[in-house]
Design a protein around this nucleic acid. Sequence first.
DNA 1: TAGCTAAGTCTTGAAATGGAACTGAGTCAA
DNA 2: TTGACTCAGTTCCATTTCAAGACTTAGCTA
Lengths: 149, 149
Amino acid sequence: MRWNELRSEKCSLARTLSVIGDRWTLLVLREAFLRVRRFEDFQKNLGIARRVLTERLAHLVEESVLEKHAYQERPVRHEYRLTQKGLDLYPALMAMVNWGDRHYADADGPPLVHTHKSCGHDFHTVTTCSECGEVVDPRAVRVRHNIAG
Amino acid sequence: MRWNELRSEKCSLARTLSVIGDRWTLLVLREAFLRVRRFEDFQKNLGIARRVLTERLAHLVEESVLEKHAYQERPVRHEYRLTQKGLDLYPALMAMVNWGDRHYADADGPPLVHTHKSCGHDFHTVTTCSECGEVVDPRAVRVRHNIAG
DNA sequence: TAGCTAAGTCTTGAAATGGAACTGAGTCAA
DNA sequence: TTGACTCAGTTCCATTTCAAGACTTAGCTA
């Protein structure tokens, strides 16, 4: 299977990966969530090849994860901002950050600390069931095909 | 920056991506969560180049995400099983599935339906704050460096 | 006029991928 | 006891993607 056939798979994970599943894209989004918006800043922070960055940003714009917004004329300069669809990736990003925190943090603790402004506490994300609110254990989940879909 | 330098970044996302962030690895894990365990089955289901599959499985075993377990002698045959560390990736996988369900499902609904055995309902995962239990909005989160870490 | 900035594009060699054929250890059926 | 089959890889080659850095364009600044 080719990578660009992923999009047409009958699988939401495959479809998601067709957008964010290649090398670099998730790190570009990390920067975006940390309020980075400009080409030069993405490039400096990540040390990514400029050609690859150009291509990744264009793809994310095409998929409406980022939007390109002119912040000045003469010369025209653009910045890249997360859309709502982009913000919707936050749970996925945080789940990966959590996993890294749990399994790869060194003795001093995780590199970043997240504070929930709503309640004022440092926190990590917890994945719960939309119906009963309990923490979800993978062994407690049954999967079936949606016959219609 | 090279991909193999990711692991030494002071960032949990980068560290996580050094394990699961390349083409194919997350799809291999999708299969693992769907109870696939054997080389041939991964290969058939994914249509991945065998060389790449060999390399990905070895990497996941090296990182203790999967473990290789002999299921028969004469000839020795192995299968790959998720470890607890591998199961811990479930929230990340499900967050990506949710995003795909939300933004790429066709009219008939998402491809797979998940049932929570504990409560008996079809569900999707919700990302909540470990401290107050509320749903987390990215705009309500402040990030700071862990000075020690 | 020279130098600077932002946001790219171009070039080139190195690395990763896809596809298909091949290998090796053992089983099975005739 | 020969031939076909299975599983889990390994090998080879052409194609694709990536890393790194030089170059380009449009306008600004001193």
